[in-house]
Write a protein that binds this DNA or RNA. Structure first.
Lengths: 128, 128
DNA sequence: CAGGATCCATTATGATACTG
DNA sequence: CAGTATCATAATGGATCCTG
């Protein structure tokens, strides 16, 4: 997913102002939650700090390559912190930042929609 | 983004039950809102029915190929309906289904987060 | 254990042109 | 106007192996 553009120099038609004012932050949000992994990783870390291998077990089917990449990006974006014990590398833990918790509303709305969606699909299947 | 798997046969450890019960609907939701375009298209159509070329103008930088593809998928998933006038192809319009409106909570939470996120980034830039 | 490196397959996006 | 077709690139994901 490409980086969203800044809207500051965007001179768009007036009739679209309401729409444009919505779309920019929404594209921003879609950009930071990017892909299938960020939210699941965040959710796993909401249970508590986790080590790399724990995350790998709990985030279904993620590979070490992808996990490492996602963790780096999330760290860069200020969503997690890496706690490396100076004495032993083996104790590295990942921890959510306070900022990550501001994703809770998104996560809840996703979950609610997903539950409803799954029911809809199931009912449609039963109706056949 | 790959299709999420059904969880029905998933025999996971008990300690992960709470987490697992969250993750499945969330993955479902992430799957249906898939990528950068579905939400922006939905938003544009929340203003009213639109024609293909109108959508292309309003959804920033989407190409006709991608737009055509997204519209097909969204139609298949029951989010939009295609209204084709039998006499003239040129009058084809796209319309949201009632189901699409159930995405509103997600859209709002994305927008709120996005606004906050943008402020955070701006403040960090100013602080330097 | 925590990743990085490599190779490869698939998907997503994009530019441009074209058609009924 | 509403898309398709073609070509190209980038992003993502998976498999496997490697290393401090």
């Amino acid at each position: 997913m490409k980086k969203p553009e800044n809207s500051i120099n965007n001179k768009s038609a007036c009739r679209a102002i309401e729409y444009k004012s919505e779309i920019v932050p929404i594209m921003d949000a879609l950009y930071v939650i990017n892909g299938k992994w960020r939210i699941p990783i965040t959710l796993a870390l909401m249970e508590g700090n986790k080590r790399f291998s724990e995350l790998q077990k709990e985030v279904h089917k993620i590979t070490s390559k992808v996990l490492a990449h996602e963790l780096k990006e999330m760290e860069l974006n200020g969503f997690i912190e890496k706690k490396t014990n100076a004495q032993s590398r083996a104790r590295t833990e990942y921890q959510l930042t306070a900022y990550s918790w501001s994703l809770e509303a998104i996560i809840k709305s996703l979950r609610d929609f997903g539950i409803q969606h799954r029911n809809k699909i199931r009912n449609e299947a039963l109706a056949k």
